[in-house]
Design a protein around this nucleic acid. Sequence first.
DNA 1: GTCTATAGGCAGATAGAC
DNA 2: GTCTATCTGCCTATAGAC
Lengths: 196, 196
Amino acid sequence: MPPDTATTDRSDTADRILDCAQERIQRCGYNAVSYGDLADALDLTTTAIHYHFPSKADLGEALVTRYREENEAQRAAIYRDESTLRARLEQYVEGYAGVLEAGGVCLCGILSSDASTLPDGVRAEVRAFFADQVDWLTQIIAEEYDDGAGLEGYDSPRQVAHLLLATIEGAMLTLPARDPAAYRTTLHRLINIIAA
Amino acid sequence: MPPDTATTDRSDTADRILDCAQERIQRCGYNAVSYGDLADALDLTTTAIHYHFPSKADLGEALVTRYREENEAQRAAIYRDESTLRARLEQYVEGYAGVLEAGGVCLCGILSSDASTLPDGVRAEVRAFFADQVDWLTQIIAEEYDDGAGLEGYDSPRQVAHLLLATIEGAMLTLPARDPAAYRTTLHRLINIIAA
DNA sequence: GTCTATAGGCAGATAGAC
DNA sequence: GTCTATCTGCCTATAGAC
């Protein structure tokens, strides 16, 4: 019987497959990672991977679902541990800096580039990830802006959220900025403007 | 004899191949576009394409080289036709909005996502494209900032150039923002801050 | 310059044994 | 749960005719 592919209670092998797939897709993109690559890296056969994830769409969807869950937990921790907008945003952008240092980029950022060739279910999860980010950023920005003036020229916290998210993803994805130092410089200065 | 693959004086067929490849790569990325796709779309065979571009690396390199040349001409026209930083930046970001309306994204933005699987020559051209953009933006920003105050929190025009470029690429590449209206909103408000 | 034909490799996916 | 073996199809690329 196939293992439980729900968000929890997954087998060790399935988790290892997801870990390996995530690391590679964050470096190379969806289309450039194959079952054969993963099988070689994990010392398995492609059949074993197909047992856990019958199609590549199933694998991709499970991957982004897990990524969203882990991301939500990270955001919750940031919200709990930090009390100012500036500190929360710095923690938030620092999370992506860690991904860059590991040699990758945001999973959903790189999947966006493959969007037009992505299976429908995977694309829907990627869209949901970005909706999560915008909603959360909008909320923490609105909390602080309600206490004082907003960012000049911006009508709403949601517009500021879109600006920050686009800059984070662009700074990660584009060459030559797949460089943690350049990413941090750009983002920390933007935070200085947003959370003045 | 193979045609002249220099930057000018290319045959009609070679230009048609480049046009078709560019449109498709701007939608789907480098790895998702094949000689077979192009041959079908152009009513040719893959062999005919290999005649003009012996390897896919040759095709990709010619593509980005041409893209850089056309982009340089566009930037020169903007510099010539507009005299204020605000007007120049608005024209600049509007160029990419046109690409979005045609259903694609910046060629070098999407190629950045494929960077780790790109042939060396193509990756080098993509890096050169971004160096072009940063240098040009730095120059036009510096011209205006020398006449007055800079952007608060930013040490140099080059840092502002990096911010703008990252935001442009991120707003184009990430879902759900492959939407000209959302792109324009984000970028016009950033221009309001940069060219206050 | 473009064609037919073909090569060798890799993709995602399945059948059936253990 | 994992294996061997295999299928079909697409990939980049080349040989040789016209």
